[in-house]
């Protein structure tokens, strides 16, 4: 966990500007390698007007076992270092700005990803991660830039993850991340070329395919199960703690009552009152388990549930449209 001298610094960047070619190469790499998950570095520079300009994107050589797995890995860092050095030789003054990560639904909320991002944000307040959601692959493009919120970073610095800390920092599972708007900016020559090209239309009308994609739903539901299982595990630890706490508090209460009676007795006899707060040194209350994992799982479940609801809505609309047309004819 983070060391105590770290302080939260507010990010200055209000938006991410990405060059068309960088965006396309990220999209290409993650969609052509799906279902393998890939991550990589986004290189660029910070402008004075409060934007992060991304000019280059380089995927890491190996696919991820889970999201965020390569962010802090040695091989990933070495690869990134080598690329940066070579690019410097070319006269590109680009620096590391963030990562991209392809994912499926809310699965990107892993401790590895969040840990790496938190550490990065502590040393560079403007670090972010570009999430490419592959749920609607071939149908739509789902790209968003995320960074951790002030509430989260402050709780992360505290490092205790008790319910009280969560409350004082106003952290709930819904405000772990904040989204930064992504803006596309192209060079004039690129724009000139793009405007000379009409939108390309293949013969494949993938997006119009009405047949239901059970596979995606099954995959989403499976992800949801495993997240719920993980949450349940955390929750049972928490419940155990609560039961222990309750038991202990009961004994404390008993002791307090006893002490009160004793003190009444002593007052009657004109003796000095015994300390009513002494229970604090006599009883050891159980330690509250960290709420870190369960907060992350809750968020992942929330995102996955939203994805499933969206897919189901699609499915229903499709099914009703087809049914009406078929049955009427």
């Amino acid at each position: 966990m983070a060391s105590t001298q770290k302080v939260y610094t507010a990010p200055t960047a209000t938006s991410v500007e990405i060059e068309g070619s960088a965006l396309l190469s990220v999209v290409k790499h993650s969609s052509s390698n799906y279902p393998s998950l890939f991550s990589g570095t986004l290189l660029g520079f910070r402008s004075d007007e409060g934007t992060i300009d991304i000019t280059h994107a380089y995927p890491y050589p190996y696919p991820d076992q889970y999201e965020g797995g390569l962010f802090k890995s040695k091989s990933g860092a070495k690869y990134q270092q080598e690329i940066q050095e070579t690019l410097k030789g070319l006269g590109y003054g680009v620096e590391f700005q963030g990562w991209f990560q392809s994912t499926f639904g809310g699965n990107f909320v892993t401790t590895q990803l969040v840990d790496s991002l938190a550490q990065q944000q502590l040393s560079n307040a403007n670090a972010f991660v570009l999430i490419l959601d592959m749920v609607s692959i071939n149908k739509e493009l789902d790209v968003k830039a995320l960074r951790l919120t002030e509430s989260f970073i402050k709780t992360y610095i505290d490092g205790k993850w008790k319910t009280k800390e969560l409350a004082t920092n106003e952290l709930t599972y819904q405000n772990i991340f904040e989204e930064i708007p992504v803006i596309i900016r192209n060079l004039k020559l690129v724009n000139l070329f793009l405007s000379s090209q009409g939108p390309s239309l293949d013969d494949s009308y993938d997006i119009l395919n009405m047949s239901s994609n059970q596979n995606v739903n099954t995959q989403l539901l499976e992800s949801l199960y495993s997240q719920v299982d993980a949450l349940n595990y955390d929750q049972s630890i928490f419940n155990y703690y609560q039961r222990q706490l309750q038991k202990e508090m009961g004994r404390v209460q008993q002791w307090k009552n006893q002490r009160r009676l004793d003190n009444l007795e002593r007052a009657k006899n004109g003796e000095k009152e015994l300390d009513p707060e002494e229970w604090k040194s006599l009883f050891r209350l159980p330690n509250e388990p960290s709420r870190y994992n369960s907060t992350l799982h809750s968020y992942a479940i929330d995102v996955l549930a939203d994805d499933i609801l969206k897919k189901c809505d699609h499915e229903l609309t499709n099914a009703f449209a087809i049914e009406r047309n078929l049955v009427q004819n």
């Binding site: 396309l24 969609s31 739509e140 793009l194 939108p199 390309s200 997006i207």
Partner: peptide, 11 residues
């Protein structure tokens, strides 16, 4: 297809 969507968006 995903790339195509992105490229068309750019265009």
């Amino acid at each position: 297809s995903t790339e195509q969507i992105a490229a068309n968006f750019l265009k």
